[in-house]
């Protein structure tokens, strides 16, 4: 077990190192000169050279990379080219909105998708199954931004026209100052981000559940005299936890990608919008910081899934 964990951690470190080198190199070969961008069109060549020297951009790439690596190890991601603020602080400021969005959305889609999937699978072909499948079809067919626009229209714009505010149209309020206000502001972003995934989870749950309910051990459970509830929730659901965990691990890692669109639609000041702005500004330290954070996130999510696997499936222990 410890050996397993150690090998996973070593692998994770290697992945992150490779990622950092890759991103660093990518920006080095990319066109555009950050020093020129910073100093502006009217700056003299000498001024640009001065800025370039200040940023350390005149040194050979391997030297730059090693310096960067050394600083990163100490938790220092450098300063934004734009406003000279530490990247770590910029990221830290943007974290609460993204984390709120991500965790809430994940809980929401798991909480909607899995029950709908189970409902569908318990009585295949029934009205409830067809309702569930209808939900799956709609959720999967619409892209996030369409769902976002639709929820914004029906839950924010339309009520406003009728003279009341059902949900606010955007903005992030701190969880610590007032959790109620925080949740109220997050409902629309959560729904937008979660609906498509909820449909995917409903479909996955339905399919896996249908397969498991045909297993011999389900017949054994019934032959024992267990109630149908216990057969479904104790024996059936337990059997599909492994595939669900696999999917969840991959999706948690990808939630940052979905968050970019949602943050734009609802004007949330999160990591997604930070990354979008940084790309526009060629603000390399921020981009590298966000990419590394996303990489760290994916790597950690994968390790957690691997560990959960060991806990869930006695056969791989």
């Amino acid at each position: 077990m410890i050996r397993f964990l150690a090998s996973r951690l070593a692998f994770a470190a290697a992945v992150l190192l490779a990622l950092s080198a890759f991103v660093f190199l990518l920006f080095f070969v990319a066109p555009g000169d950050p020093a020129r961008l910073l100093t502006g069109e009217k700056a003299t060549e000498a001024q640009v050279a001065q800025v370039r020297a200040n940023l350390g951009l005149d040194r050979p790439i391997h030297e730059q990379y090693l310096t960067f690596l050394g600083r990163t190890m100490k938790g220092d991601l450098g300063f934004s080219y734009r406003n000279q603020q530490p990247v770590t602080r910029l990221i830290a400021n943007r974290m609460p909105a993204t984390i709120s969005l991500g965790i809430g959305a994940i809980l929401l889609w798991v909480g909607i998708g899995i029950p709908i999937g189970i409902m569908s699978a318990r009585h295949p072909g029934s009205l409830r199954d067809r309702l569930g499948q209808g939900f799956i079809l709609v959720g999967i067919s619409f892209p996030t931004f369409v769902l976002g626009m639709a929820s914004l229209y029906f839950l924010y714009f339309l009520p406003r026209q009728l003279g009341f505010t059902l949900f606010p149209g955007g903005g992030y309020k701190s969880f610590l100052s007032n959790p109620w206000i925080w949740a109220w502001h997050m409902v629309l972003p959560w729904t937008t981000l979660a609906l498509a995934s909820a449909a995917i989870y409903a479909r996955l749950t339905r399919g896996e559940m249908l397969a498991v309910m045909g297993e011999d051990y389900i017949r054994t459970a019934r032959a024992k005299g267990l109630s149908e509830r216990k057969v479904v929730y104790k024996h059936g659901l337990r059997g599909i936890l492994t595939p669900l965990t696999t999917q969840l691990g991959a999706d948690i890692a990808a939630v940052l990608g979905g968050a970019i669109v949602t943050e734009q639609v609802y004007g949330l000041q999160g990591l997604g919008s930070l990354a979008v702005q940084a790309v526009g500004n060629q603000d390399r330290p921020i981009i590298i910081g966000v990419v590394l954070l996303a990489g760290l996130f994916i790597v950690v999510a994968n390790i957690v899934v691997d560990l959960l696997y060991v806990l869930l499936d006695p056969r791989v222990r």
Binding site: D216, K224, L226
Partner: peptide
């Protein structure tokens, strides 16, 4: 079921819950 009439079936691998 289970109390008065019990059942065992063909494949003992798939009939026991693996988890």
């Amino acid at each position: 079921r289970g109390a008065r009439i019990a059942m065992i079936s063909q494949d003992p691998l798939s009939c026991l819950h693996p988890f």
